[in-house]
Amino acid sequence: MSLDVIVFGAMFVMTLGAGLAMLFARNAVHVALLLVLSQIGLAVAFLLQGAFFVAAIQIIIYAGAIMVLFLFVIMLLGVDRREVLDEPLRGQRPLALGLGVLLTAQVLYIAWRGVDLAFAGTGEAAIQEVNSDPGNVLGIARVLFGRYLLPFEVTSVLLIVAVVGVMVLTRRMYPAAPNVDTDIPGTEAEEVAV
């Protein structure tokens, strides 16, 4: 049993365990932290397969930025909020679990078949060659800024639309309550002047 297999086993247990625990955690903060654990496990999976750049941005953007945003919103809305446990749709949970088991069986079958069909064992050598000669980041940059330059530019439009959209959404539409700032001595003169 080599080191790779041990690392893979630990990563497998950690990622899947954190994912399963997410289903049963009652507190939203616990769910968020378990998701971070699962994402770090996935970063290890990316490292094992030679995707070094993707592993780095997985930790920086996903486990870092996006999950911090989630935690911010959870804190903003109140941490001690409890989920109601009674079920308005009868039989929804058993049905969901049954369908989940079915989906698991299908996905595992496809994974098993897909390896048979698509894996010739030659791909790893190519990835290793790219990773060692220009390096993983440079290789990705060549693909990203070469063949995928137009989609890359379109994503910048997407980001701008998202930012503007969120600013419009969270703007307060109703007239604001009397502003506390105007009561500070010394600011009244400017307010009147404006």
Binding site: F12, T15, G19, L20, L108, I110, A111, W112, G114
Partner: peptide
């Protein structure tokens, strides 16, 4: 790779 695909599939199902 099959084990990685299986892990991804299980996570998706979760």
């Amino acid at each position: 790779p099959g084990y990685f695909l299986a892990l991804a599939g299980l996570l998706f199902t979760i």
